[in-house]
């Protein structure tokens, strides 16, 4: 069973790194084409053709923009990698969920779904497993964006204080409900995080309630 868990965790890591590396490939591809275009234009200028300096400037700016985009992807990937540093840590839940949303954005986009977040109450801190929380949130986003009915819609995530700790509400497109987290592995994840998953049939939301440990 331990081996199975290791395999699943590795699988999750694999999905995240595959998605981020694919996005980085796109960044490099755009940089490559703009650098190539600058080269093309300069070659034409050397042959005596008049070149619009504004076009060169746009191409150079596009390279800069892609560098910023690539930097953001790498920063997020690095933050994600460090989630596995400690088995348990005090974390700001809003920041952790924002990170999952960033790394899951491409998966959602490939399914035609946009991820949105209701501006959260900042620094809702709680002691939990940072890596398991990432995995749990990825799982929720995966479920919320998986159905064909989700296409062209948005999944919204809201984070709020709760008497027990912190509550995360996940709302699918058009308020449609989605499959609950009922598998044995889902339950293990919930236990690791110290959370409970419920569904609100009235709103179609999935609600993850993270319980603040007794010592906090």
């Amino acid at each position: 069973m331990a081996e199975l868990n290791d395999f699943q965790e590795l699988g999750f890591f694999g999905k995240v790194t595959a998605s981020c590396s694919h996005e980085l490939k796109n960044v490099l591809a755009v940089v490559n084409e703009n650098a190539g275009l600058i080269e093309d234009l300069l070659e034409l200028a050397a042959k005596g053709r008049t070149i619009d300096p504004a076009r060169l400037m746009t191409a150079a700016q596009a390279v800069k923009t892609q560098i910023l985009r690539g930097d953001a992807i790498i920063k997020n990937l690095n933050r994600f990698a460090h989630c596995a540093d400690e088995a348990r840590a005090d974390i700001a839940v809003d920041q952790a969920v924002e990170l999952t949303m960033c790394i899951a954005a491409r998966m959602a986009a490939m399914r035609g779904v946009v991820l949105t977040m209701t501006p959260p109450v900042k620094n809702l801190t709680l002691r939990t497993s940072p890596f398991a929380l990432q995995q749990l949130m990825w799982r929720c986003i995966d479920k919320a964006t998986a159905s064909d009915e989700s296409r062209g819609g948005a999944v919204n995530i809201a984070i709020e204080p709760a008497p027990e700790g912190v509550r995360i509400r996940i709302k699918g497109p058009a308020g449609k409900g989605f499959e609950p987290l009922t598998s044995r592995n889902d339950q293990k994840l919930l236990n690791l995080v110290g959370a409970e998953a419920t569904a609100d049939p009235a709103t179609g939301e999935m609600i993850i309630t993270l319980t603040r440990p007794a010592a906090q």
């Binding site: 796109n26 084409e33 703009n34 190539g36 275009l37 191409a59 596009a62």
Partner: peptide
């Protein structure tokens, strides 16, 4: 978009 647009231009 930026990728296809630039490849087209080239």
């Amino acid at each position: 978009e930026e990728l296809v647009e630039t490849i087209c231009e080239r």
